[in-house]
Write a protein that binds this DNA or RNA. Structure first.
Length: 361
DNA sequence: AACTACGCCAACCGCCTTTAA
DNA sequence: GTTAAAGGCGGTTGGCGTAGT
């Protein structure tokens, strides 16, 4: 058989927008009898529609528990976080937002959230800083946007966090490159050598993306100018997560972060040692995580200021840990690696009220 | 006022998975 | 185990409203 024919192929069945009369017929029938077989429902309810159309109308619009209206900041934050983990699994995302349908979330993502992320320099697919060359051309705009954020109501901690990180990464990297090119200090050359001369890894890949010939970068280099983090606005409302004015100073251990990306994924900020990861899992999960079943490593950001204090991947002792890497983490440089631990959650916990302040190490 | 372009979102389409006979 | 129906899902479309010219 060459695929199934659409359920609405039968001639005479109505398509297109539903009228209030049709809605009422559907509501009346389901309230009295339940939906039962969707295929049989239209005839029984006196509707000249196919069952599939009835099901969609009910599940996406008429169901009594549907919440309509503007998405709250909390809902936006949750969608972004979940999307970073689940991708376009709209139905799975919808299970975390009571009253919202997958269709509504999908539409909201495509019309609003995707644009917001792009405007803030974040790739809406990877949720990582955009590395395309256009970003360099837009850097002044991004810096201005970062300052404007101070004057606006915070609309989304997760989004702001990602935006801050993206901007910091870009500026820090540029700053390092500029320093290397302008004064050739040995320590900076060591930094570059460390990233460029070792075996191929994802650091190199990311660095090389930034190092692609670019007229604007070339202009900055030839001027011998320098960018500094002081140009970035601090983010006073992001508790415990202040990148501002760090410059090239060594990181303070108090800056290390662990964050909940979603119900089932902890994201450990670069600089978190394996010990910290284990301590967090063992001491802070309050039974929420039953079994860590996945650890991935990824190069989310290059933040040179953190490099010297980052953990050596060899210190991750799998035998002592609930964390069981599924990838060979030794293939990546440990100097700019984030750790993500995934686990099964005990969803019976009623107090699933993580917030940033709870999670600061 | 008329026209065009664009954004939004409900609804559709087609494929995949699950269920039931 | 096989098959077809039903349900579920994600991508896409098209109509409507609105802003811009």
């Amino acid at each position: 058989m060459m695929g199934r024919s659409p359920c609405c192929d039968e001639s005479g069945l109505k398509k297109g927008p539903w009228t209030p009369e049709e809605d009422q017929k559907l509501i009346d029938y389901i309230q009295r009898h339940g939906h039962g077989s969707w295929r049989a429902l239209p005839k029984l309810a006196g509707l000249n529609r196919c069952g599939k159309s009835c099901r969609l109308r009910w599940t996406n619009y008429l169901r009594p528990d549907i919440k309509r209206g503007k998405f709250s900041d909390e809902e936006e934050q949750l969608i972004i976080s979940l999307h970073s983990v689940l991708g376009n699994k709209w139905s799975q995302i919808a299970t975390h937002l009571p009253g919202r349908t997958d269709n509504e979330i999908k539409n909201y993502w495509n019309t609003h959230l995707k644009k917001k992320l792009l405007q803030m320099g974040i790739d809406p697919i990877t949720h990582r800083p955009r590395t395309d060359l256009n970003l360099l051309a837009n850097l002044p705009h991004l810096l201005a946007a970062a300052n404007i954020c101070n004057l606006m109501n915070p609309w989304d901690n997760a989004l702001r966090l990602q935006a801050d990180a993206a901007q910091v990464a870009k500026v820090q990297l540029l700053n390092n490159l500029l320093q290397v090119m302008s004064n050739g200090a040995q320590q900076n050359m060591d930094f570059v050598n460390h990233h460029l001369s070792s075996a191929p890894n994802r650091d190199n890949y990311l660095l090389n993306e930034y190092l692609e010939p670019n007229s604007q970068l070339g202009g900055l280099l030839s001027n011998g100018s320098s960018l500094s983090l002081g140009q970035l606005a601090p983010n006073p409302t992001q508790s415990g997560f202040d990148f501002s004015n760090r410059g090239t100073q060594q990181p303070n251990p108090a800056d290390y972060q662990v964050a909940v990306v979603s119900d089932s994924c902890y994201h450990f900020e670069e600089g978190s040692s394996s010990k910290m990861v284990n301590n967090y899992i063992n001491n802070h999960d309050n039974g929420m995580i039953n079994n860590i079943n996945h650890l991935s490593t990824s190069v989310d950001l290059i933040i040179p200021a953190l490099v010297s204090a980052s953990p050596d991947s060899s210190t991750i002792n799998q035998t002592e840990s609930k964390i069981k890497p599924t990838a060979d983490i030794s293939t990546y440089s440990s100097t700019s690696t984030t750790f993500e631990a995934w686990g099964d959650l005990n969803l019976d916990d009623e107090n699933n009220d993580y917030n940033w302040t709870d999670l600061v190490e």
